[in-house]
Design a protein around this nucleic acid. Structure first.
Lengths: 238, 238
DNA sequence: CGAAACTTTGAAAAGGATCAAACTTTGTGG
DNA sequence: CCACAAAGTTTGATCCTTTTCAAAGTTTCG
């Protein structure tokens, strides 16, 4: 597996080698395609190689809540390794390429190499940290702050895997999808985005976001990147 | 350590024995006492033995968001084993007794016994599943539904560790604390509780909740216990 | 080029927040 | 064991953020 496991880096050369030797099946998916569904029992984990995916839950009236966006390097369903039944779904948002690794191989590797197990465990813990930050935003921040926070988070995460160009990045999401993630209506998302643009804080041109005033956006979203546990801390951006 | 590690159960006798031999320091805390704070680097994990604790984050204006309530048997900061810096705080809500185990001992045990490592990993994954359910509620459910959901969740969790009496349990939370968890104002929490009582769905007498109409409450909160990953599934209550 | 998907705009309504004050319970010191 | 202060609950009135509904623009893509 000759893929950068982005965040799993504090590993010995041997451990990295062992990961690289895991058998992977690569598959391409079209946009808006479910990869695993709530309730499924899955035997594989997947890695996002290219594209953009999301984890989501559907409530009884059919509306959905997006729980997380996944970018290349992410392993969105790593938790399935120890939680057999999915408690949410995973879907592509744009055409995406994913790598699949069988649980059996991963469990085997974890038993043989505690270092790999610890690194993967850590990966799922960072996941949890992001959920906590999300809950805090949903419970206590205004819609405007939540949206600003999301835009800040995506910049740092995309930058960490080389997919940002300074303060500019491709964000292939509709406003409806942003709303589903932030718990807001499309209409309101639209109005907030317009405000932020009118204030000269961001610019959006054909699904490419450009953050014109990083400190301003960060202040609006009360964004503190600590919860992302990025290896290079503040990153080159600060 | 002669304590029931409630949910960590799918372990061999040897593994259980090894856990039981971990050196634990027991300490008692008064109510509303911070155990670890956002930003701390901690060298121990703690187990709630008696009482009630919560994990929370404070935002810039001083308001807080409670992320989770912890009951006896929970290990609220297990994630600190691999995430050195706390991204939230942990505090008692009532006088509580906690057990502390050094990270060094736990890491050592995880290296020696992959089964224990996997069980603990799983524990943190269940934590993550609860956060996902929480986010869904915060984003897409009404205040009334969220409150109903919380009351349902607490019944099942307390029942799983023998702290519920049928549909009745002690809930030592103020309405302000419930509000901090659900992202609601005290006033609104109060009004919803009154509605639920007036409708004969719950009764509350001196911090003891009695769920009079379980199916009704469950329907209001769209409560599906799958995300709790309780060993006995539906539990005796259903 | 045309249909479908997405964004934008306006107006009205709802769900919760905030503010302020009264009432009730709990815990503590005398 | 009582009295009182502090903490928590309840009530009413008003305000504001966000939702909903409806319809008109604008992109995108086959």
């Amino acid at each position: 597996m000759h893929i950068r496991l982005s965040k799993i880096i504090d590993l010995s050369a041997d451990d990295q080698q062992a990961i690289a030797e895991l058998p992977v099946t690569i598959r391409d998916f079209s946009a808006d395609h479910d990869i695993v569904r709530d309730g499924d029992r899955t035997q594989h984990c997947c890695i996002v190689l290219e594209g953009f995916t999301c984890r989501y839950k559907v409530i009884s009236d059919g509306r959905r809540q997006i729980l997380a966006f996944n970018i290349p390097g992410d392993i969105p369903d790593l938790q399935s390794l120890h939680l057999q039944v999915m408690d949410h779904s995973l879907a592509t948002l744009v055409p995406s390429r994913l790598g699949f690794v069988a649980h059996t191989h991963m469990r085997d590797l974890c038993e043989r190499r505690p270092g790999v197990a610890a690194a993967m465990w850590r990966e799922t813990l960072i996941d949890g940290a992001a959920f906590r930050a999300w809950i805090t935003g949903m419970g206590r921040l205004s819609a405007r702050a939540r949206l600003a926070h999301l835009l800040c988070e995506l910049l740092l995460r995309l930058d960490a895997v080389g997919l940002a160009d300074g303060f500019r990045y491709r964000l292939p999401l509709t406003q409806a999808e942003i709303g589903d993630a932030l718990g807001l209506s499309v209409v309101h998302v639209n109005r907030i985005l317009q405000d932020l643009r009118a204030e000269g804080i961001i610019a959006i041109d054909r699904r490419t976001v450009n953050i014109l005033h990083w400190d301003g956006l960060r202040a609006i979203g009360q964004f503190d990147p600590a919860y992302l546990h990025l290896k290079n801390g503040a990153t080159a951006i600060d």
